[in-house]
């Protein structure tokens, strides 16, 4: 016969579970990481406006990621999360020159299939892309 766990055990289990989930999500949004801004910025052409603006995406590097270059513990039923996530990473600034063909830095990605995908900039291997 199997014993039914006591209410205390149940409450503790749910609390620990909730806490771990919160920790995981916090970790994924970078709460535990000591973010530092890279000196290299990714320049992309902004399609938001018609008044010659340029979007600058400044990458943030997660230093102490237990994920180790891979976004883990997720599922294929989840969307992809770029590694450099932070709401204010995409800033719109006036463009100085929109006529020249500046390369759009293409991010490389690493991930596991079940666990989602990350985008990580690799400046050396970028492929140039023309703005529309």
């Amino acid at each position: 016969m199997s014993k039914t766990p006591s209410t205390t055990i149940k409450v503790i289990t749910v609390s620990v579970f909730t806490l771990l989930i919160i920790c995981f999500v916090s970790y994924r949004v970078g709460a535990f990481d000591n973010f530092s801004f890279s000196s290299k910025s990714i320049t992309t052409y902004n399609s938001n406006t018609s008044d010659n603006q340029m979007a600058v995406d400044t990458p943030i590097v997660a230093k102490d990621s237990i994920i180790i270059d891979q976004e883990m513990m997720s599922s294929s039923k989840s969307m992809m999360i770029p590694k450099n996530f932070k709401r204010d990473t995409i800033k719109t600034i006036p463009a100085k020159d929109t006529t020249s063909k500046k390369p759009l830095k293409k991010s490389s990605t690493m991930s596991s299939s079940k666990s989602g995908i990350i985008f990580e900039p690799q400046p050396d291997k970028d492929t140039a892309k023309k703005p529309k």
């Binding site: 995981f24 989840s78 999360i81």
Partner: peptide
């Protein structure tokens, strides 16, 4: 062209919830 990183928390939650 939506920046998914802006909803990283939601995506992370749904990811682990799917497991």
């Amino acid at each position: 062209g939506f920046p998914l990183e802006t909803i990283a928390g939601l995506i992370a939650f749904r990811g682990i919830w799917a497991i």
